[in-house]
Amino acid sequence: MLTGISSLIGNAGILLAAQNNEPDFMIHGLIKYKLFGQDLYITTTHVSIIIVTLLLITFFLIMKRKMKNPEEVPGTLQNIAEIIVEAIDNMVNQNMGKNARRFVNYIGTIFLFIFISNISGVFGLRPPTADFGVTLPLGLITFALIHYNDVKKNKARAFTSLFKPLFFLFPINVIGEIAIPFSLALRLYGNILSGTVMMALVYGLLPIFVKIGIPAVLHVYFDLFAGAIQTYVFCMLTMAFVNDKIAD
């Protein structure tokens, strides 16, 4: 569908142009616009991210209306919502203990967003998380959260702790802190991108009779399994870093 729109508008907007005979896993620009004298594009990532966000918003708006008068014996939708909320509550409670109430909303939000983004490859979208421009902001939000809570809890000790255990280790400590959002972002990005590239190679390079059945197995591994694991890892590491700063 997306390639259809792309060819309709014309291939002028291709950001990272692929050769015609290469498998297609690149980000394509769909609509070109100018802002402050720069050429910018609405890319396939934007389209995927809007679809994912709309899906989540619609689901939770429906759930909000449904849960205004919850039933004693839950129906299908109520069951799904209860499973999601319970799973996230349990995960955060296990890792953060008494601080869980403050962070469960943030962790739940990024968990659902990253999870739906990662598995959207199954539904034919290009996963939004296979774009460094999506994962880096997620890492930076976590970075801001870590240091906001660090300063809030430890006051001045948040800065003096950079000089420990020895004062000349200051540059190494700073690099260690700055590396956190990049390692978080690159881990997610690399995993999902490698899955996307593998699937594109399987679809693009293999003969037609191999394409029946075998990609389904690979989809289960690269999209569902790796996507779920990476979502879990991102949330666990976020919780571990925050917990490290606000622990007594």
Binding site: S183, L186, R187, G190, N191, S194, I229, Q230, Y232, V233, L237
Partner: peptide
Amino acid sequence: AVAETTGLY
């Protein structure tokens, strides 16, 4: 998953 990161780089 964390150990995998270096390979991904």
